[in-house]
Design a protein around this nucleic acid. Sequence first.
DNA 1: CTGAAAGCGCTAACAC
DNA 2: GTGTTAGCGCTTTCAG
Lengths: 344, 344
Amino acid sequence: MSDPTFAPRPTLEAVAARAGVSRATASRVVNGSEGVRAPLAERVRQAVDELGYVPNQAARTLVTRRNDAIAVVVAEPETRFFTDPFFAQQVRGISRELTAHDNQLVLLLTEGAADYGRVGRYLAGGHVDGALIFSLHSDDSLPVMARKAGVPTVIGGRPSWSDADTLYVDCDNRGGAQVAVRHLLGLGRRRIAHIAGPLDQTASVDRLDGYRDVLPDVDPKLIAEGDFTPEGGARAMGELLDHWPDLDAVFAASDVMASGALRVLRNRGMRVPEDVAVVGFDDITSVADWTDPPLTTIRQNIEEMGRMMARLLLRRLSPLAAVDGAPALSPIVTATQLVVRASA
Amino acid sequence: MSDPTFAPRPTLEAVAARAGVSRATASRVVNGSEGVRAPLAERVRQAVDELGYVPNQAARTLVTRRNDAIAVVVAEPETRFFTDPFFAQQVRGISRELTAHDNQLVLLLTEGAADYGRVGRYLAGGHVDGALIFSLHSDDSLPVMARKAGVPTVIGGRPSWSDADTLYVDCDNRGGAQVAVRHLLGLGRRRIAHIAGPLDQTASVDRLDGYRDVLPDVDPKLIAEGDFTPEGGARAMGELLDHWPDLDAVFAASDVMASGALRVLRNRGMRVPEDVAVVGFDDITSVADWTDPPLTTIRQNIEEMGRMMARLLLRRLSPLAAVDGAPALSPIVTATQLVVRASA
DNA sequence: CTGAAAGCGCTAACAC
DNA sequence: GTGTTAGCGCTTTCAG
């Protein structure tokens, strides 16, 4: 049996020969550039079809230095990446935007810092034109690697350092948190607890800051740290109740954690929202709409943020961006919005 | 401000010059081939470090025709891909195996047949050495594209066609289903329903066949088709109960669907397993262990199957595989195992 | 054991 | 408009 791998793929040379033109002309037709007379172009196209010609990307990349591929790097154990709907939505937004611009999404999974070397090599190897990096923890070295590798990058979420030419997309975490807490205050709640995300991520810190902005003198025991999982939310809720059995509201830094908190509340026989009002963050419909009761939460348009990341990167990559006088690119911070359901 | 993108990356030529050797020798050192005298090799390595040299993949690929990258293509709406723990586990297995062999995993997402063209082009463009394709529906054209593109492929799950040189990895769906149903029979159950997966996938058909093997004369109304989601499982359970209010057992073609069925059963006030015994399929711990009651199910080692897919493909790609007398590669069908918990 | 030289397939000046 | 030509950065015979 012949090995299909070794079936030599036709080259541009072959196409040109068959169409009776030069390689250059064939290349022009294949790349859709103007200024090839119609009949010639037609002959080339036909040859392409007959031969089933597909350009060799490696050869093309070698000269153009472009891949039309973008890496998405997630600095998070695969488990959470796959489990948390947050990523799914963001990746979908990215995927759609990239696809619309004929760019291929290349998802690079990391199971932990041990994989960073491999990812760094991949980026430095010039496989992709740019990178979208996610879910940074404060010590994260991925963006540094990308920069060293000369790969333009946009970061999902505000990075912990600040730096004039670091591009990122984030939502107004602090403002959203303030709105959440004020909503609870407006409901007459006075013992408002907070379930924070892991505090090595800026999103968690910003949401905590927003909470503190509104409640400056709050007892530290009203704050517990979760890890953006339902279990973490449940655990935090438990701690909170141990210290403050009579708390009357909880603002959780994510819907997923809020769902865990809800479970604990129910198990302990506390009614939501009568005894304890609960507000989440994210508005992940598959979670917030499904909990019992449905979750009041702070919406951020996650898919749209994914799109924006991709768009920002693509613009950064565009030759136009390098021209003097082109508008400078800057980070994007999107607005959030309170969504009132039954839990608060 | 200087644009980091345009910082020219050092070439092998530069490394060679700095080390005072020829490009050929530098290449040998970089690629770890034998037969370069130690002191020379050392000088080259030092030059590499000092310059921060990383080989240009495009150039390398152009001559070696290898990418050391494997595509994973999922023919499933992103939504399910991200939601269903099944994929997460399989991808993890693949990822680990590929990483161990210094291959990069490139995940290609498709939102539907509209994206197939793009994926086909990507495969044909020679970006990857091979492809792992998942979740085929009977009309699926992805494997055909891969073959046309000359990209060696291993399929996850038995494909609907049969073909001597199509490689796949699957579990013994039919046998597993038989065991599940016999277990239910052994429990004294006599009105055993089945919640099937979408019948355009072989896994669903095979599990249904297994059920029918044991229960050849079953009433068609005891079979309902789901879609591998909890909601689908719930809907199917509803239909089943409408026709057979007194059924005493259900075999669901996946744990995820079983979890939906469990919810419906509870809502209708039926006790599990007293009134209705339930058996799932997959043994996805995050689901089966968490349901109430925990699910009796048929275990397949999903992560290991992912590993096997990767290993099979890598072997297929290895130069050794092309040698005459090399062992022929063949599809792999893994055994399943009954795991008894509380639901049956 | 090391170096010189010939491409891999393609694009982009530059001529014609 | 179209063809000719010179590389892109690397690996790999083939001499020495």
